[in-house]
């Protein structure tokens, strides 16, 4: 039991950090530009595919640097030549632009790398068990993922709090109009943030692609969960996104362990349900079956009762 709890905590932390890497960029973009980037997970996927291609030619370590840079550059281009054009048509058009972009990226990935998964593997240097606790191993690669994501958080935090551009971004997060009135090049900052956000997603793709599976469907599968983190964390709050990621990681991980269903709950109060009728299945679903859909429930409830999110500064 102790083993199970310890590893569940570790798993929550690891999954939460991966979620945070994915969503930190989106939080920045969303808070600043008001654009809910549906293609964010597609940049995550591009990161994984570029890393795979680069690691075929020169190896994993250069890919760790190069892939996020390339994707960041692509992201900046998208902002400059796509989003800025549709900006004048309003947020709905911007949102639909990113929906279309996600579509095109997926189809292009199909065209270039084929429709099956690619064999993107964990580098040999990290393919061993870092340590064994009780009977369970923790692989070195997962420790590496943790190190990368924590250091990313620290670097991001330092950039945002200690540099001039970071301060401008922070100001623009909460008061975009005011920053513009002060004479800062807000479109330039937008481009930078969008590119930067995409390269953060790509970094998550580089280290997540071989841990998960690198396939054309990976973007569509991860897309919605990223929104959940952003919404639950709250607009304009990186710390909120961080807390929300860990919270969702924990929620999903521990829900798996709970094998109670509604009928058990009712039985506890002395009520027995007659299994029958068209909705009889509701009673038999155990909490453990629902783990991965809990975040959506969480998101809907959060939006209804506290649309600011956990630590949001303002509503959208």
């Amino acid at each position: 039991m102790l083993e199970y709890i310890i590893f569940s905590l570790l798993n929550s932390l690891l999954y939460g950090m991966l979620l945070f890497m994915l969503s930190s960029g989106l939080t920045l973009i969303f808070s600043m530009m008001g654009v809910l980037n549906f293609a964010h997970a597609s940049f995550f996927m591009l990161g994984a595919y570029f890393a795979f291609q680069i690691s075929v030619y020169i190896g994993f370590w250069p890919a760790l640097i190069l892939a996020p840079l390339i994707v960041g550059f692509l992201g900046a281009l998208v902002e400059r030549y796509g989003l800025r054009t549709v900006h004048k048509y309003g947020h709905v058009a911007e949102l639909l632009f990113t929906v279309g972009l996600a579509y095109l990226i997926e189809e292009s990935v199909n065209l270039i790398w084929g429709r099956s998964s690619v064999d993107y593997r964990v580098p040999d240097a990290l393919d061993f068990a870092a340590f064994t606790l009780f009977t369970t191993d923790l692989s070195a690669y997962r420790v590496f993922m943790l190190v990368i994501s924590v250091s990313m958080f620290v670097v991001l935090f330092l950039i945002l709090t200690r540099t001039r551009i970071g301060l401008i971004i922070q100001a623009a997060l909460t008061h975009p109009d005011g920053v513009s009135a002060l004479g800062h090049n807000v479109p330039g900052v937008f481009m930078l943030v969008f590119g930067g956000g995409c390269s953060l997603a790509a970094l998550a793709g580089v280290i997540g692609g071989n841990y998960l599976v690198t396939e054309p469907a990976m973007a569509a599968q991860l897309g919605p969960i990223v929104f959940v983190v952003v919404v639950v964390g709250g607009m304009g709050s990186l710390t909120g996104a961080f807390v929300a990621s860990l919270l969702l990681g924990t929620l999903q991980t521990f829900a798996v362990g709970i094998e109670y269903s509604l009928s058990d709950l009712l039985a506890f109060f002395g009520v027995t349900m007659e299994a029958g009728g068209i909705l009889k299945d509701i009673w038999r679903i155990q909490v453990s079956h629902t783990g991965p859909i809990l975040p959506y429930l969480f998101m809907v409830l959060m939006l209804i009762f506290r649309p600011k999110g956990i630590m949001g500064k303002r509503e959208s």
Binding site: L95, F227, V228, P292, L303, E315
Partner: peptide, 23 residues
């Protein structure tokens, strides 16, 4: 955006439960 996200969440919830409620 709030409405869009709620609709997305509800959509995901109903679609996921569709496979869990076979009756």
């Amino acid at each position: 955006t709030t409405f869009a996200l709620i609709s997305l969440g509800i959509g995901e919830l109903i679609a996921s439960s569709a496979l869990m409620l076979p009756s």
